[in-house]
């Protein structure tokens, strides 16, 4: 009986430990992930489109920030996203954009309301503050 109680306690503690580890340990970026490094090497950004990219319509995406050296998710203090059409020298309508951190996931955000006003090549400029350092990564995308 005592053996069974100790075994149960052991199993319970092991499960508790593993759960506690998942909450604290930063997520590791999958090796096959494509992304871009920020200009000053402060972070590595992966942007995945959940809707789009579309032109003259609304798109949505997720932003995942990783450490530039170890490719582990990092905490980000602030995020700003500015789509810019470099070839024509203009931006887009941004008033509907909404950036929301994903609960329970360090360095992960959703962004809704991305509106690219026309088709063609766009630079999505993502500026983030990491440990007090402000840096920008640029994601190239072509809207149809």
């Amino acid at each position: 009986m005592q053996y069974l109680l100790r075994l149960s306690l052991c199993v319970f503690l092991c499960q508790a430990c593993s759960t506690h580890s998942k909450a604290d340990a930063p997520a590791v970026m999958p090796a096959s992930t494509e992304g871009v490094a920020s200009k000053n090497g402060t972070f590595f950004l992966k942007m995945d489109w959940t809707t789009g990219p579309k032109s003259a319509a609304t798109s949505a995406a997720t932003l995942s920030f990783y450490d530039a050296n170890h490719h582990q998710a990092i905490s980000v203090d602030s995020v700003a996203v500015v789509p810019w059409m470099t070839t024509m020298g203009h931006g887009t309508a941004m008033k509907d954009q909404k950036i929301v951190p994903v609960a329970g996931q360090v360095g992960h955000f959703t962004i809704d309301g991305i509106y690219l006003i026309m088709g063609g090549p766009w630079d999505i400029r993502v500026t983030a503050t990491v440990n007090g350092s402000v840096d920008t990564a640029t994601v190239a995308v072509t809207a149809p």
């Binding site: 032109s55 003259a56 026309m118 063609g120 090549p121 072509t142 809207a143 149809p144």
Partner: peptide
């Protein structure tokens, strides 16, 4: 219709 930097037609907003 928009004509982008690669000469391709794309959606023209506006």
């Amino acid at each position: 219709k928009n004509v982008d930097a690669d000469g391709r037609f794309s959606t023209s907003g506006g």
